[in-house]
């Protein structure tokens, strides 16, 4: 399943309805993408992995609330 915001014909990412996202949304999506990446790594200490996965859960809810991304994060330990 598609993990993150899509990209339309324009330059930036789009939300779940295909509309361009606002600046603050784009910033939030960057945070989400970074956490998502870190949560999938298996070479980090437990204190990092556990906290990152927890943080990813919260940010995942925020991007879903805003209609930017909708995905289930079990594969990222979240």
């Amino acid at each position: 399943m598609r993990a993150t915001a899509g990209y339309g014909a324009g330059a930036g990412p789009t939300d779940l309805l295909g509309r361009p996202v606002e600046d603050a949304d784009a910033e939030l999506l960057e945070v989400y993408a970074r956490l998502r990446h870190l949560a999938g790594r298996d070479d980090l200490p437990p204190c990092v992995t556990a906290n990152v996965r927890h943080a990813l859960g919260f940010v995942g809810v925020a991007v879903t609330d805003l209609g930017l991304v909708f995905e289930h994060l079990l594969d990222r330990g979240t």
Partner: peptide, 11 residues
């Protein structure tokens, strides 16, 4: 519930 599920439930 997973981590994200619980964060969502609280939300």
């Amino acid at each position: 519930d997973s981590r994200k599920d619980w964060a969502w439930a609280a939300d």
